[in-house]
Design a protein around this nucleic acid. Structure first.
Lengths: 342, 342
DNA sequence: TTGTACGCGTTATCAC
DNA sequence: GTGATAACGCGTACAA
């Protein structure tokens, strides 16, 4: 159990020098004889000495650890973001400590608390669906604690945000459907308290208007859960009961798009001949399903990487919070596949 | 930046008592007057005091943090495992620090090293595809450092392993194909240095033999990368060039199964009428593709949860390593869908 | 009932 | 060129 890691003290004792000498020798400080330096380094190597990061943290009040708070790990987009975070943090010598909130506000708060107790240097956050009040974040921001939000970002003045251009992603997707000749386009939207949902809906609406189509409020339906089952039910109902049959679905995520596709198949509607479908996020399965699903790709890895770079720069004072008055926006990319081309 | 967290010292000064008194009052130690206790707690509350976990770690040489080393985060199975780990660790008051190796041995070694420097109490490992030598783990095990392996486990005596019953999962999958009347069953296997690959291949072979079929070595093909592209190429080649046409594919993972499915479609073969297909892992997309994919479900969440329970029990000395002479094996479940039923 | 002193591992500061 | 000491925040054996 006890790892019995060698300490600077052990080396000092063995060599009959002081701990300070050892410390300096190891760090190539000036004013240490080459001879001593050599001996110390040699022994350190032999004893497999590794500085105790905890002791360093205590001394410097810096842990070289950042926290990550996300709603869910089992999620293609978020896991991709984590991958980007991991990559950058690792290459810059930081550890990543992770918690998922499972979309619970309470969990979000306790996570922050324990992370702070662990002296993390900063935190990356995508908040839970339950979160509507941001005091637990603003308190920290006011004290100058480094926080970078990504994807799900609060609409408060002090926050530093990294997001994708949901508006233009949705705009391009809708425009694509229109250009393919679809006219009655349903939008399966996300939870309306999330800014990303609003932006996607706005992009959808503007695309319609700019192409001379009118907005039919009946064709905008909220899918709160975002699962394929839920979307399938909703889409089936629209197909069965609406007087004017829709000829396309633009879903706020890929699961919902699949739900719509299944509903079409069940109703005997051919995709893409009769109904066009576009999703959002470009999950792995998009290219595997039949017909393959057109989707708006979000650069998850880059979001994670960018957010981490900013956070670490903040921590290391290479940039100031004032440099981020407006959100950092990364571009989406529409990947056209079979589900929307006729 | 500086969070200026209140310390025990601040409270002591404010109240004109010693730090030890404060410490004891906060922990309800005997021999503290109710009055003092009340005052201390009140002020601690007011100052929003949180014990500094780093200082505690240093003092107790216990960090209440466990490390997790996995090949990839963007992976349905592994992210599910992480979720299970997170859940249990969190509920028992431990932090989780995460690194992905991207299947690189070098990364695996440095990860372990930095985690140790951070005084983690134990580590959960699923090793990289490059790892063939386990000295960097056995060294630690020999010193009694708690490690629990999951999914990809080393075949060394001292290791504590949590795995799924790959053998029986593969056996059942193959048996199912046979019972559905398929006879020329191809096995798209995984990298042969992974034990899980060997076990799955063994289950496949035993099922054939026990049902009176012979094993054709030509029908066992290794897919090292495990991507759908790779599998598609391999499957196409088999379909095109083999004298005896295969009528089923049992793949070591779902991606490969999808590759096989695409290859069949490209060759004009109907699934499941002419060719049956079964995958492994039950990724989310299995139910979304058409035809839906029969797959062997691995209880990822439970693997993560179980491995973490064991690790924490080891750390807290509730169990001894000797209690785990043999691997902990969790059962798989064959989820029959359309791709294998005619 | 409370305070003093020390140690966990490291480094900055001052002294020799 | 090297050593002694204090400090980071906390818990605890020992004193009072």
């Amino acid at each position: 159990m006890k790892l019995e890691q060698a300490t600077i003290k052990d080396i000092a004792k063995e060599l009959n020098v002081s701990t300070s000498t050892v410390s300096r020798a190891l760090k190539d400080y000036p004013g240490i004889s080459l001879e001593t330096k050599r001996k110390v380094k040699e022994l350190a190597d032999k004893m497999n000495y590794r500085p105790n990061a905890i002791a360093l943290s205590l001394r410097k009040s810096r842990s070289y650890t950042i926290g990550v708070i996300i709603p869910e790990v089992v999620h293609f987009f978020f896991s991709t973001v984590i991958s980007g975070i991991e990559e950058v943090a690792n290459s810059r010598g930081y550890n990543v400590i992770l918690t998922q909130t499972n979309e619970k506000l309470a969990r979000e708060k306790t996570s922050i608390a324990t992370m702070l107790a662990n002296q993390i240097d900063g935190v990356l956050v995508s908040y839970s669906k339950e979160t509507t009040n941001f005091d637990h974040f603003s308190n920290l921001l006011d004290k100058g604690f480094p926080i970078v939000f990504f994807d799900r970002v609060p609409e408060i003045a002090e926050s530093i945000n990294v997001i994708v251009d949901d508006y233009s992603g949705a705009y391009e997707a809708t425009k694509h459907l229109i250009q393919q000749g679809y006219r009655k386009i349903v939008h399966l939207s996300g939870p309306s308290n999330l800014k990303i949902s609003k932006e996607r809906a706005r992009g959808y609406q503007d695309a319609l208007i700019n192409h001379g189509l009118s907005i039919d409020p009946n064709l905008i339906v909220e899918c709160t859960k975002g699962t394929d089952d839920e979307a399938q039910k909703i889409a089936s109902e629209i197909i069965d009961t609406y007087p004017v049959k829709p000829d396309a679905f633009f879903a706020h995520n890929d699961m919902a798009a699949v739900g719509a596709m299944l509903a079409c198949k069940a109703a005997g509607l051919k995709v893409p001949e009769q109904v066009g479908i576009v999703g959002f996020s470009n999950w792995q399965f998009c290219s595997m399903i039949d017909p393959s699903l057109t989707s708006v790709a979000q650069p998850g890895f880059r979001i994670g990487a960018k957010a981490t770079e900013i956070l670490l720069d903040l921590i290391e004072k290479k940039v100031s919070p004032d440099d981020f008055k407006s959100s950092v926006v990364l571009e989406t990319e529409l990947l056209v596949r079979k589900s929307s081309v006729r």
